[in-house]
């Protein structure tokens, strides 16, 4: 019995799955294009998608130069946040007291309005990479931590008592059962957080940066260039989608058993 399918057999269902999404997105873009062209609205107010794409191509070098710092801030910030979330999730999993001490702090950190915090962090740490990393981490740390902690808690009790009956230590139970059990929650958190991460990075740049999509958007807006604003938005959206896609791919590779539940043996 073979679990692998043929290549054509893989791509045909993928296409039929994404066709509705292509259709809905396509409809929106066409509607926008028609409205911008025929309603008489000025291109300063609302440029048509074709114009946005034209401007994006025209300014591709500047966009590219400003995208790199944003990617750097997103990836570094998210990397730090992931590492910290993992370390703290393990700590609070092993110590209830630590959990009760730290969780209020984390929750309070989530109540801070980014609009107020971002300029302050830039003020304290300058226009470099550091404040961006911090702001991205601030936005993504808590969702990742919660996802991991919830994932550990979702471990099957039967599996844990089985391991205990085998004489497994608390650390072994964590490594053998709790950590793998958290994977679906981890990836759910990852998909949400990665989208926050891009937004966080752009917001940090918006508050003050030498280069980056955030500052590019700010400058374009101040120069009354909505076409360029939207071109930068297009780049942001593409970047987020690519990062999102990467997390989905990683999940597929990391959890090969996950898709078996649907495609059970015939």
């Amino acid at each position: 019995m073979s679990t692998s399918r043929t290549r054509a057999g893989v791509f045909a269902p993928v296409f039929s799955k994404i066709a509705p999404a292509l259709l809905s997105v396509g409809t929106l873009v066409v509607a926008w294009e028609l409205y911008a062209r025929f309603s008489g609205i000025s291109a300063i107010m609302l440029p048509a998608p074709s114009r946005v794409i034209g401007q994006a191509l025209e300014h591709r070098q500047a966009l590219f130069d400003n995208t790199l710092p944003t990617i750097r801030a997103t990836v570094f910030g998210f990397g730090c946040s992931l590492t910290a979330a993992f370390v703290f999730s393990v700590l609070v999993d092993f110590s209830g007291r630590l959990r009760r001490a730290l969780f209020p702090v984390f929750i309070i950190s989530q109540t801070l309005p980014l609009v107020a915090i971002a300029p302050l962090v830039v003020l304290w740490f300058g226009f470099g990479l550091a404040p961006k990393i911090m702001l991205v981490a601030l936005v993504t740390f808590f969702p990742m931590l919660v996802a991991l902690v919830q994932g550990y808690a979702a471990t099957d009790d039967d599996i844990q008592s089985l391991l205990a009956s085998m004489g497994a230590s608390r650390v072994r139970v964590f490594l053998l059962a709790r950590l793998p059990s958290s994977l679906p929650y981890f990836f759910a958190g990852l998909r949400i957080s990665i989208t926050y991460a891009v937004v966080g990075a752009i917001f940090a740049e918006y508050a003050g940066a030498a280069k980056g999509l955030g500052i590019y958007i700010l400058n374009a807006k101040n120069n009354f260039r909505p076409g360029l604003v939207l071109a930068a938005v297009l780049v942001c959206a593409t970047l987020t989608l690519v990062l999102f896609g990467i997390t989905v791919l990683i999940q597929r590779v990391a959890m090969p058993w996950e898709r078996l539940d649907q495609g059970r043996r015939r």
Binding site: D158, I159, L162, S165, L176, P180
Partner: peptide
């Protein structure tokens, strides 16, 4: 001392 091997009610196999 663990002289017992325990088999739980549900199989408790690890899906991963």
């Amino acid at each position: 001392r663990r002289p017992f091997a325990f088999m739980p009610q549900r199989d408790a196999l690890m899906p991963w």
